[in-house]
Design a binder for these strands. Structure first.
Lengths: 143, 143
DNA sequence: TATTGTTATACTCTATAACTATA
DNA sequence: TATAGTTATAGAGTATAACAATA
């Protein structure tokens, strides 16, 4: 009876899965894993951030994050600098190659997305965005 | 410029991530991995299905699926029978313990969900469902 | 004392490709 | 010839807990 919302969650999961199905191939073609692309996409269009913030945004735990960042660093896609204000902390950002990859892969994934959304009208967007923003706000408000 | 839809995708991803953050703990408390819970949830409330169908629904590739199902079988949560119509194929279904776990974990996750959605009105649901169903349909229609 | 990130452990997932058995 | 699932391989992600350095 208290499961009115299950239909929404199921739809949400199916949409995400559908989108991942479409984008996954391009990600793998660039030699990136899902976790690695998650980091690249999270760092893209930002000045960079700490492990802590990256972990919170991607849901990758700190122990795992060390390894993922290490592999991205070896590939020359991210760089680390010590935080100027907290000597325990690092600041991770995309390198120029990382930016380039982001600028290359993301549009490829999203060009695909563009096709998918070709028939979306402005009104469709507004309805979807409003509904999702509302959902996000109640989820975020949950402890 | 052709990136009007990026906001929707970002919202979609943030909603999924928020929900996973809320449900993840309960899943792990039951000793299940993400992939394993994915299978249990996919088999729940169905008569069962083949590896092929499970793989299509969960995006887990066939080689991986063999191992995931094997571990669930060892835990006594799923059972396999040969398909009566195709001797190459299996029919995987939840065992009574699997059903029990599904009936136990899912509400625990979703009770959490219930709290989150407590303030959702019927109209909120309808708008979200309609928007997501539309999105799903255009994604599914994409090759 | 609490927090940021590292290391160690043990296991699971992952993609990929070659393979077996059946269709 | 094509398809359902298995096996083999090599690597990556995962949670967890104990640890270091710094706050």
């Amino acid at each position: 009876m208290g499961e009115r919302y299950l239909k929404s969650i199921r739809l949400l999961a199916e949409c995400m899965q559908g989108f991942e199905r479409l984008s996954g191939r391009h990600v793998r073609e660039q030699g990136l894993t899902h976790a690695q692309f998650d980091i690249i996409a999270t760092l893209g269009n930002t000045p960079g951030m700490s492990y802590k913030e990256l972990g919170e945004r991607t849901l990758i735990t700190k122990g795992t994050l060390t390894g993922v960042i290490e592999r991205l660093e070896q590939k020359g896609l991210v760089a680390r600098e010590r935080s100027p204000v907290d000597a325990r902390s690092w600041f991770i950002r995309l390198t120029p190659q990382g930016e380039q990859l982001f600028a290359d892969v993301f549009p490829r994934v999203t060009a695909r997305g563009g096709e998918v959304f070709a028939q979306f009208t402005e009104s469709d967007y507004e309805q979807l965005e409003q509904a999702l923003a509302h959902l996000k706000s109640v989820i975020a408000a949950s402890p």
